[in-house]
Structure formats: C-alpha cells, structure tokens
C-alpha cells in the first residue's frame, strides 16, 4: 500500500452525514450562487444542467412500510487517484493539463481558460461530477449584479466542476499571511459554501491531515490505505475503483453504505480479495 499526500501541507476533505441530510437542496443553491453557476430557463433535463453539488435520491427498493430513502449530496470527490498520488481519473486524462491536482491542498482544480472542451475528463469521472457548458452562460436581467467577484464565470464550450470553493481557501490564506501566520489557517477560516448552508449540519469540511479537525475525527482516515476510513460507519463512493475520494459519507444504515459501491452477489459484508492483492470489506 502506498502513502497518501500526508506530509504535504493540507489535504482538504469533506464528510457528509447521510442520516442528517433531509434532501432540502440548500447546498445546491448555495453552491450555485457562490460559484456563479449559470442556469437554464428549463432545468428539467438534469443531464445537461450544471450542478457542481448535486443531491441524489436513493431508495432501498423495498415496498411500504419498509421503504427507506436517503439523499446523497455529491460534490466533486477531489480524487487522489490510484495510490493517492494525484493521478485522479480526470487529471490523468486531460490532454491540455487544464485540470490539475494541487499537491499542497489535495484539491483538483479546473483552468477554464485552458480547457478546450474535449470532454475526456467527463468520460473519466465515474461520479458525473463534471459539467460542460453547452450554452453561453446567461443570468436573468439584473442578476449579473449579484455575481461573486471572486469567481470567474465560465464561457461556452468548457468543462467546470466543484472546486471546494477554492477562492475561499485563497482568501483565508491571504488573511493568514497578512496577519503574519504564514499560511497557517484555522479550521473555521476555510469552509465551503455548502457546508455553511446546510441547515441540518450534515456537511463537515476540513483538513484530513490534521487530527484536530472534525473531518479527521469523524472518519479516522488510514494514511497507509490511501485515506480509507477506519470508522466502520463511514465509506467513500466507489471505493473499489481506487479513485480515493476526499469526500466521505457516514450512515448508520447498512443499505446506504452498501449502495456506496458495487458488490456482486454474496460479496457484501465479507472480506473481498482483489487480484492486485488489496483486500476490502
């Protein structure tokens, strides 16, 4: 097993408590306004509308009265990629280096002015976290006034995705520098918009490399297993693909944890040995 990017400065990540999420969508709204995400007049077709943060609805598939629902907010997972070295599925395929892995933060960035819209990265991302600008960005009259000056709007023909509100990290870093703390930033100084907007407090954000941060306490990531959670109630989406996300989910419900990955008949709950020598439960 390889080591993750610990030792490097930060490894920002998110923990989402699925038992707290009510599916209200506040995170989605907060994200769109924070990040100047354009929208269409008719947003019914979810396959071509841009939602950096998207809440999926899962059901356990059982009839009443056992029916159970789970809402799963899905930002970009900021995958560390195989071995957690920063070869995220999307970063490794972009031919123009228009999406990059920040080894000092663990954040996967997107350079809008360099992306030429080949969409290879979209094909590479199993979470559908990447969105293409099929149209010119438009806002209803007067709404341009409300756009955030800290985030550049994107042009037609390029791909965009969740940035973990990177501009907030930059602001926090600038502030710390100004106050002569070098770039030692406090947990509360850098929080994403969705984290702050969630009325249920389902989202927690922080540095996974810092044992004092809530995210680290919640999931107890194993640095020798690319950050795999040691908390048995925590999981990462599609763990078996070895994308090594930095977004973790927590749920007491077994079916929810099971829905986080694919299992063949009889595999769930058992130790699974894969051909490359990894084992997995």
């Amino acid at each position: 097993m390889t080591q993750d990017n610990h030792g490097k400065k930060y490894k920002f990540g998110m923990v989402i408590d699925l038992d707290k999420c009510t599916g209200c969508g506040s995170c989605m709204v907060a994200c769109m306004s924070e990040n100047n995400v354009p929208f269409k007049e008719d947003e019914t077709n979810k396959k071509d509308s841009i939602t950096w943060m998207r809440v999926f609805k899962l059901t356990n598939g059982k009839p009443f009265p056992e029916t159970d629902i789970c809402y799963m907010p899905r930002p970009c997972m900021h995958c560390g990629g195989k071995g957690d070295h920063g070869h995220s599925p999307c970063v490794s395929v972009c031919p123009a280096t228009a999406t990059d892995y920040g080894h000092d933060t663990g954040i996967v960035s997107q350079i809008y002015t360099r992306c030429f819209g080949c969409r290879y990265c979209m094909g590479a991302c199993p979470y559908h976290a990447r969105y293409f600008n099929w149209w010119d960005p438009k806002w209803p009259d007067g709404m341009e006034e409300y756009l955030s000056p800290n985030v550049s709007p994107r042009m037609r023909g390029v791909v965009e995705k969740c940035s973990f509100c990177y501009h907030r990290y930059q602001a926090a870093r600038d502030k710390a520098y100004h106050e002569e703390r070098r770039d030692e930033i406090e947990e509360s100084e850098y929080q994403t918009a969705c984290t702050q907007a969630c009325p249920a407090g389902a989202i927690t954000f922080g540095d996974l490399n810092n044992p004092d941060h809530e995210v680290c306490k919640f999931v107890n990531p194993d640095p020798h297993q690319c950050g795999k959670p040691r908390n048995p109630k925590a999981f990462r989406l599609l763990e078996r693909l070895q994308t090594n996300p930095k977004v973790y989910y927590i749920s007491e419900r077994e079916w929810v944890r099971k829905a986080g990955d694919n299992y063949r008949d009889g595999e769930w709950g058992k130790e699974i040995h894969s051909s490359d020598g990894n084992s997995h439960k």
């Binding site: 123009a96 228009a98 360099r114 992306c115 030429f116 819209g117 080949c118 037609r156």
Partner: peptide, 11 residues
C-alpha cells in the same frame, strides 16, 4: 467536436 475549436492547439 471540441467545445472551443479555436483553442485546439492547446493540446
């Protein structure tokens, strides 16, 4: 096929 044909040379 590319979204920004004028940037094709970026590749």
């Amino acid at each position: 096929d590319i979204g920004q044909p004028l940037r094709g040379w970026f590749i």
